[in-house]
Design a protein around this nucleic acid. Sequence first.
DNA 1: AAAATTTGGTTTATAAAATAAACTACTTTA
DNA 2: TAAAGTAGTTTATTTTATAAACCAAATTTT
Lengths: 98, 98
Amino acid sequence: MSPTFKKLDPLLHSELRLAIMSLLEETEEADFVYIKEVTGATSGNLSVQIDKLAEAGYIQIEKGFSGKKPRTVCRITPEGKAAFERYFDALKSYFLHK
Amino acid sequence: MSPTFKKLDPLLHSELRLAIMSLLEETEEADFVYIKEVTGATSGNLSVQIDKLAEAGYIQIEKGFSGKKPRTVCRITPEGKAAFERYFDALKSYFLHK
DNA sequence: AAAATTTGGTTTATAAAATAAACTACTTTA
DNA sequence: TAAAGTAGTTTATTTTATAAACCAAATTTT
């Protein structure tokens, strides 16, 4: 059979969103500022991308305060974990010989 | 240390271009029609994407004829192989725990 | 205590990319 | 010889990513 390439979830096939998900998969939860530092993203881009992930149900966003400062905490959901796993599996089909 | 995510080559971080490169890495060469079949891409999209890969020097495009029919053959270059390898390595940084 | 700066974001605008639709040129089949 | 098929390219549209501008509250400086 000819090699067939599995479809890559477009929501995860984005450098920044993938980094966010990878981070959250390891840490379970992380706040906006930390994610921004680790990924090197701009605030604007990060804000947009976590919203997309939240809309898809891949992460949960909790807005609260740390003292008087706003604090946005992100957490990966079970659906998010499953999607991340599926994305990883799909990716393998592009690197079968590796 | 906090996890750092390696930059993903934007030219390879595209589902179709990645499929093309993956295919060519395995087969060394493949023609337009075959790539189209395997990837399920439309002709238009495929035409655009192989041009981008060729402009980057990742593949070579050879236009000839098979009998009276035009035949476009693509071949991966050493630079293309190196880029593909680098992309794969970078990708690993997003899946360290896997 | 007013003014300026920093923090933690959101919103809007712009640039780049992917996809689809339309078209070209030629060949084969009915 | 007209219709349909093959092998693509070009152009237009939609989607996505990125960057720039903005906002409110808190903190620091003078």
